[in-house]
Write a protein that binds this DNA or RNA. Structure first.
Lengths: 222, 222
DNA sequence: ATAGATTTGTACGTATGTATA
DNA sequence: TTATACATACGTACAAATCTA
């Protein structure tokens, strides 16, 4: 007996849930576009059953929105939505960092510091946009993880799905990757001292994100 | 042509989603108990398809939890979960009330005041537990609605589902219905003045809820 | 407005994997 | 452990609703 094949493959409905989610956040569908389960099932070479179940989950995420009659359309992010979502994100990330400050072990804080160092290094070496998105994302994820509140993680993840569209904008072209790293480092300075000032700095950081996003959303519209 | 029958009935999968959700939060299943789609389908006299889709939604809500192998069990609320969830709830309700203070119209505030008056009246007349739960819930819902952030409403609703179990405990037996009304009235005093002190009072109110719940959860365990 | 073509909602059948004796 | 029963994942079929010509 060998050690391979240790876990069974995920069921189709979960695989397609992830797959379609990626397609949506990566902009492979036009926002507002209608989505067709029959067509998707054919495209993936499976029956409609697992596709339907995946679509139910995507609707819960808010990535699919019920059409007037029946069926779904792709979520379309309005400027008001961005603002609303950032208000929520700020509230939850504030909680996360507050909990993290009191609960994270010294070792966990060290992991965060190492991540920031690595990010600085990779920026210097001209890493790709997608890689920077990943590293930036990871900073927030670590804080979340070290807040040791599983439910908070779940909630924030579900908010973050909707702003992933935005996350991409934040890095496209010149982006503000260097600025973001700088802000993350500032936040961490206070985390290291376990000072609540980290919360304020995180809030400012997220506010900068929001302002930047709104600017880009407006220019895109022209 | 008449005005009746204006909306078509919901599809089964949505009807059963609501139905099963109610059954779970009302304690008709034992937490941790395994749930069987074949059995449910038979009990409701439908095929497994709509039941399956309903169950996916319930899993997203967190009311059903994936079993090790396959299938679902009913979510079981641990004391740690209660604390985690209340932390999130407090963060989101704080945001809600902060937004409400700046955005709600005078008329909207009046609606809240009327709700509190009505609640006081019904308590005096010895209303039922279920009715008091409803009125209490409605206070929080109005604040949420008048915060004018649709996404926040969605998020908080999804948190609240998990603590609805608790909500019931809050009123069973003697409960603290009168105390809750009192705290709501205090919160509202500051809302009326559009003072941020309302936020603090809401936080205290939720903390009292939490402490009370934990006490009841512990005594129940004996 | 009607007829035909899509598309969704639901029933049902089958295969595979899991529990149970 | 093996064999049986059972539950779930997925496919297929059909009916009802919706769209389109």
């Amino acid at each position: 007996m060998n050690n391979f094949d240790l876990h069974k493959p995920l069921p189709y409905y979960l695989q397609f849930y992830e797959k379609i989610k990626q397609m949506i956040v990566n902009g492979e569908y036009e926002p507002g576009q209608r989505i067709n389960e029959t067509q998707l099932a054919k495209a993936f070479g499976v029956s409609r059953s697992p596709i339907r179940e995946a679509m139910r989950l995507l609707e819960k995420d808010g990535l699919l929105v019920a059409d007037q009659k029946t069926g779904f359309i792709i979520y379309s992010l309005s400027p008001e939505d961005v603002e609303e979502i950032y208000q929520i994100r700020t509230a939850l990330e504030s909680l996360a960092i507050e909990l993290c400050i009191t609960r994270a072990s010294d070792e966990e804080l060290l992991f965060i510091e190492q991540l920031l160092d690595r990010t600085a290094e990779e920026i210097k070496q001209g890493a790709e946009d997608s890689r920077l998105i990943e590293l930036n994302e990871h900073f927030h994820q670590l804080i979340l993880e070290y807040s040791h509140n599983k439910h908070l993680k779940k909630q924030l993840d579900s908010v973050n799905v909707l702003i992933y569209f935005c996350r991409v904008l934040n890095f496209k072209g010149k982006g503000r990757a260097a600025e973001i790293l700088d802000e993350h480092q500032q936040v961490f300075t206070f985390m290291k001292k376990r000072s609540l000032k980290a919360v304020e700095h995180m809030q400012q950081h997220l506010h900068h994100d929001l302002v930047y996003l709104q600017k880009r959303l407006n220019t895109k519209r022209d």
